[in-house]
Amino acid sequence: MTSRTTGRIAHFLGLVLVTACALFPVYWMFSSSFKNQVDLLAAPPVWTFTPTLQNYVDVFADPKTLNGTINSFIVASATTVLALLFGTPAAYALARFEFRGKADLWFWFITNRMISPIVLALPVYLLAQQARLLDTHIVLVLIYLTFNLPIVVWICTDQFRSIPPELEQAARLEGASQFRIFWQLYLPLGAPGVAVSAIFSFIFSWNELLYALVLTRRAAQTAPVAATSYMSGYEVPWGKIMATGSVIVLPVIVFSIIVSRHMVRGLTMGATK
């Protein structure tokens, strides 16, 4: 066997290992959602079992799951739309214009990500209480925006910077307004970055647990909170939690597949030599 073949096999085995590590928890969640409580608590764990849909029946019988999923969808969509609406023009400005305080602003965007979310949980709770926003979609959207806007601005600024400046100059000479240049050049050509930041924003908002737990009670409770709410002091119904988890993950996977189509590399090929 040549060293090249050995290398390839090692490479392949390495990839298999990494993939297995990444996918095993997901597999365990899906498979557990089809187990009954006895199989779930079996030690050592059972690998073969008679699948049951009872967990899903229980989960969907409970309005918390459906409501939670709807709430999550509303909050994640609104956050993503608003983050793109405010983030992409900001990214365009940071990418292409020179203005006073640009570097400071840039740094400020990053500093937002330096704070551990738990540190702000109590102040945010008190503020939300004062503003009578507890248990509303709005408070979640607002707090998620503070985390997602920097991500959108960051990714999109970098993406927009990679667009050749001659394109903008050509468009200016052709009489395009600043808004049109942004809308007809930067957004379509920066689509990969916009798509990536949309995915990040959506997934973050969809999966966020800490603030959702602190700031919502019932009306605006999101899916992750609903999943954990099955845990009580006396029992942990792993089957229901795993079934809820599986239900929560599906929309994100679908959304990511749809958006990832726009993440085509080399979209700007052919603009300039």
Binding site: E166, Q169, A170, P188, L189, G270, A271
Partner: peptide
């Protein structure tokens, strides 16, 4: 630029790729 009624051909062509 747009009001000067000039057209420019760039070294890199600067065609809109999309």
């Amino acid at each position: 630029p747009a009001r000067r009624e000039v057209s420019m051909v760039f070294q890199s062509y600067a065609l809109f790729p999309h």
